[in-house]
Design a protein around this nucleic acid. Structure first.
Lengths: 222, 222
DNA sequence: AATAGTTTCATACAATTGTTTGAAACGCAA
DNA sequence: TTGCGTTTCAAACAATTGTATGAAACTATT
């Protein structure tokens, strides 16, 4: 048994490096240097570089999804089986945003790694990614229970846009800061979450007010 | 002059391949094979691989931004100098969505290349990317004119979220299709644009109705 | 036709990549 | 200690990468 020191050292180093530099420019030699282990250790313990990445991704996926589902259940329990739509979406985007934003020192490599994984679609991950859809479906049906009058299509779009805002905020946080001259405070994670959730919920619930507001739906065809 | 046949052949091939496979797994040899030119041609005509990518990115950036600004101006002219917020956002996200979605055969390599460039942040592009902020600022100030009562911060967030929804829709179109069992029709580009714009506009204008709706802003601190 | 400049080409180069190898070091039961 | 399975290590390997070279093929001016 022996606690597999080098194995976990490799995992930690790989996650850290992948999280901050992306998959494409982190080599095995970078990883083993960071982990202070021998080059051959990766192949010995994981078989190949791809299997290392795959194991990382699977492990972290499970952890993230578990946290999201935990928050979803919590919200549903609090509402007696039917969660508020805001709370559902908060359970969806909260964990990843909390992991990737906020003061630099308390960001988790896990969350940042997952973002990288969702951006740079490297083969070993692409192969696994199908399962994520099953996970999202659970949120879709929770949303359906929260907003029984909404059409399924609209719910899917709402779910999709919530993830869009969350991920894009993480990926482009630097640009938003620059664009706004620092006015948009990305360290206030709960405010960011609230904005994302609010944006998504509005899109889902403001149907009735659409006519009242000045929103002009594009004329489809001339 | 001689029309620089091989030069443009390389540009076209590179753009096509980068657009569909990403930067990280397209080699110079892939490009020259696709372009039917000699391997050394890239270095002869562009100096290096990075310079090829940079030239592509600069050219395409300019083209995309020009189209966006053209539509913005058009909207502003139609409104006598003050464009509707929906039209501003449509000018922002329309061109890239039209280029990347819709029936496969009519997608433009240009738009898809730009999305790749915004995803895989490869060094030569990262160096240039600062200029994009100036471009976005023009949209920010147009939005300010359209919604003079909104706070600057909210406008920046709205702009940011509009881009978020557009880009994420392009990147994850396949997943959304699967998740919704094909119910979300990503070939109906104008519908997608309308949804993105509507979502962003709601976030920007629904402030007053916020109390009325069931949106619950997260309690910041206990 | 002869020449000078440009472009193409096959080939080679040096560097980097993931992976393999076989011996050494280690842990631990007999 | 002996022996055996596991783990580590330095070194090498084969493949792939971007780039450089120098001769050949072209183009166009004289």
């Amino acid at each position: 048994m022996a606690t597999d020191q080098t194995r976990t050292a490799i995992l930690i180093a790989a996650e850290r490096l992948y999280a901050e530099r992306g998959f494409s420019d982190v080599t095995l030699r970078d990883i083993v240097a960071e982990a202070n282990v021998n080059l051959a250790a990766v192949n010995y313990h994981f078989g190949s570089k791809d299997e290392l990445i795959a194991e990382l991704f699977v492990t972290r996926s499970i952890a993230l999804n578990r946290e999201r589902l935990r928050e979803l259940r919590e919200a549903e329990d609090a509402g007696g089986g039917r969660a508020d739509i805001s709370d559902i979406l908060r359970a969806l985007v909260g964990p990843i945003l909390r992991g990737c934003l906020g003061p630099e020192n308390q960001r988790s490599a896990v969350a940042q790694f997952m973002i990288r994984a969702s951006i740079e679609s490297v083969p070993p991950i692409r192969r696994i990614k199908t399962k994520e859809i099953d996970h999202l479906r659970k949120f879709a049906s929770a949303m359906q229970r929260a907003l029984p009058d909404s059409s399924e299509v609209d719910l899917f779009w709402g779910l999709h846009f919530a993830l869009a805002m969350a991920h894009h905020t993480i990926r482009e946080s630097e640009r938003l800061t620059k664009l706004s001259d620092g006015q948009c405070d990305l360290d206030d994670v709960e405010d960011v979450i609230a904005r994302v959730v609010r944006g998504a919920v509005l899109g889902l619930t403001a149907r009735d007010q659409a006519a009242k507001s000045k929103v002009k739906i594009a004329a489809r065809s001339p």
